[in-house]
Design a protein around this nucleic acid. Structure first.
Length: 552
RNA sequence: GUGCCCGUAGCUCAAUGGAUAGAGCAUCAGCCUUCUAAGCUGAGGGUUACUGGUUCGAGUCCAGUCGGGCGCACCA
């Protein structure tokens, strides 16, 4: 709706001879008594125009020219707000629009012709996914959906490394458990992976090889098998949440020489050196971030000759630019907060447009059962495994709970609440609204022969003018803006809140307005409104990756 | 010590710099011979951690203080 008001206000300012640099804000007042939309332009411009805001607002109003039958009232209020009230029929035409666009309703074209890469999860295959990873996974998936809804060509990418030290330790951990299984006495270091899954992998290898590998000190065969099994389990877990990546980028490729015999990592060093940001001391190669005002330089190549994680990270991001992505989105947890600024600095030095990079960082998750906070620990127990959580509360609740709070806030995952089949549980509240509409429509087809494939005309839409109906219709009108806002903030939580409000408005409408028992035309009009609500709920659920049950 | 996030009703959380700070849960009071009561309506509940500042206007921005979380490796 911003696009609707902006040009009209802009030309009103021009024709009224009001010159201002201030932006034209279109907002929705929290309270409907201040209109459906309002602008504060008179308040903002008052000073530079040396005029009283209310007078200025009055002048603006006199020059506003809206299309016929769209606005029912315009007024100056408060200190100088201009409030707009939409005409009921204009609001209700959203019903027509929703039904016409169907699954496409709400989609936009901000990203038309642009390629976006959204990187998320990106856990190395050292163990099963934890609940904390799950939050980032769902957040990333929803963000990818939002980009997709705005016309971006989206690649969902998973970045991983099967070469580094952690993977070496993984292989060694499995080897030790295997030896143990073969009856040998072992000493299992505390630095190694303690989880039960290590023993399970060792058991599988014992079943395949018997004791044939018992004398071997070779780690790679154990590492490789562990990686295969763990990666398969990670993908299976993600699949349960409908998270599917298009691309798995192995960090290892950055260590491989190209035709000219140079690795991507080496190219980064060369270019940074040419720009004067590389120095060598203490046997290592450093990125001179002290030149950028940081306290310490950062190691790019360790004295062992191996790159530290930062170097391939920079090289990896260069591939994102080189692969033609104009929008580069990274989703990760708060524990990686210090990871990206160095990468961005390096890319800036190398001449890349880092404004194209967006980072979404999610805060941590704690789970509570019966009000007791479970301490998350990878070392002990399975209490923090994502799979166990999905077993417990289901995929829909898992997804919705992960994104129903702002990503900047710590998430308190109440397992008991997520399992509840009542209105306390936001998942059921939302899905119940959808199921209720489905049930209503089934009944309508039987009882009054309503055809959901038909479309409403102006006459029918005019019958929808009670407060509950207008509130619901207005929410439908608002959906496209909701997608834009969620995307701009990289915050699917906005969509959850919106859908919760939409469901609430529907329940209220359902309560206050008899449908099948109403006079025939009114009944039809209300059914179309219900049908459109169902469509928007579905479209929103699709963005969030939550299912839309036909009955409950 | 330092970087980032958070501090809002008893609890879990909202609020693009706007108007009287809102929902849900919990508590209390109502609404089903009627389309799914897994629902709806109403009531009570607040010095937005604290102190200053910027602004016509601050929960929101800035500075500082106090609390909580996460980082601060030649791990990723």
């Amino acid at each position: 709706m911003r696009e609707f008001f902006l040009p009209v206000i802009h030309s009103a300012l021009l024709s009224a001879g009001i010159m201002t640099e201030k932006p034209i804000n279109i907002e929705q007042p929290a309270d409907k008594k201040f209109g459906d939309f309002s602008t504060n332009i008179a308040l903002l411009a008052a000073k530079e125009c040396r005029k009283n805001p209310r007078e200025l607002a009055q002048t603006v109003i006199e020059h506003l020219i809206f299309p016929k039958d769209t606005i029912s009232k315009i007024e100056v209020a408060g200190a100088g707000f201009i409030n707009f009230y939409l005409a009921p029929l204009f609001i209700m035409q959203s019903v027509e629009q929703v039904l016409f666009d169907g699954d496409e309703y709400g989609k936009g074209s901000i990203g038309k012709g642009e390629k976006a890469v959204v990187e998320y999860v990106s856990a190395n295959p050292t163990g099963p996914l934890t609940i904390g990873r799950g939050r980032g996974g769902v957040l990333g998936d929803c963000i990818a959906n939002l980009f997709d809804a705005q016309g971006y060509e989206v690649t969902r990418e998973y970045y991983f490394n099967d070469a580094g030290r952690q993977m070496q330790i993984l292989g060694e951990s499995v080897r030790l458990r295997y030896m143990e299984r073969c009856g040998k006495a072992i000493e299992f270091p505390a630095t190694h992976y303690q989880g039960e899954y290590i023993g399970e992998i060792a058991e599988l290898m014992y079943q395949d090889h018997g004791t044939a590998l018992a004398e071997s000190t070779e780690v790679p065969i154990f590492k490789k098998r562990a990686e295969e099994i763990i990666f398969a389990s990670i993908r299976k877990t993600l699949e349960r949440l409908s998270i599917r990546h298009d691309s798995f980028f192995n960090e290892h490729t950055l260590y491989m020489p190209d035709e000219a015999g140079i690795t991507a990592n080496q190219r980064v060093i060369d270019k940074l050196r040419a720009n004067g940001f590389i120095s060598e001391y203490d046997g290592a190669t450093w990125f001179q971030t002290t030149k950028l005002g940081q306290e310490k330089d950062k190691v790019l190549i360790k004295s062992s000759g191996e790159p530290s994680y930062r170097l391939p990270d920079i090289a990896y991001h260069i591939t994102k630019f080189e692969r033609g992505f104009s929008m580069i989105v990274n989703v990760f947890g708060a524990d990686h907060i210090d990871e990206y600024p160095d990468v961005v600095e390096a890319l800036k030095i190398l001449g890349y447009d880092t404004r194209r990079i967006k980072v979404a960082i999610n805060q941590f998750v704690t789970t509570t059962v019966d009000g007791q906070t479970l301490k998350m620990s990878t070392r002990k127990g399975n209490a923090d495994l994502l799979d166990d959580l999905i077993d417990d509360v289901g995929a829909d609740a898992t997804r919705l709970f992960f994104i129903m709070r702002s990503k900047d806030s710590h998430l308190n995952f109440d397992v008991e609440l997520a399992k509840k089949q009542s209105k306390d549980n936001p998942v059921f509240y939302l899905q119940y609204a959808h199921a209720r509409i489905c049930s209503l429509l089934r009944m309508a087809q039987q009882e009054i022969g309503f055809d959901p494939a038909s479309s409403p005309d102006r006459h029918l839409l005019q019958l929808l003018n009670s407060p509950a109906e207008l509130q619901l219709g207005f929410a439908l009108l608002d959906y496209p803006d909701m997608i834009k806002t969620s995307l701009r903030l990289l915050e699917p939580q906005k969509m959850v809140e919106y859908l919760h409000a939409l469901a609430e408005f529907f329940h209220r409408f359902y309560q206050e307005c008899p449908i099948l028992k109403a006079e025939q035309d009114v009944a039809k009009a209300r059914l179309f409104l219900s049908l459109a609500t169902r469509q928007v709920l579905r479209n929103g659920f699709r963005i969030l990756g939550v299912s839309a049950p036909e009955s409950m």
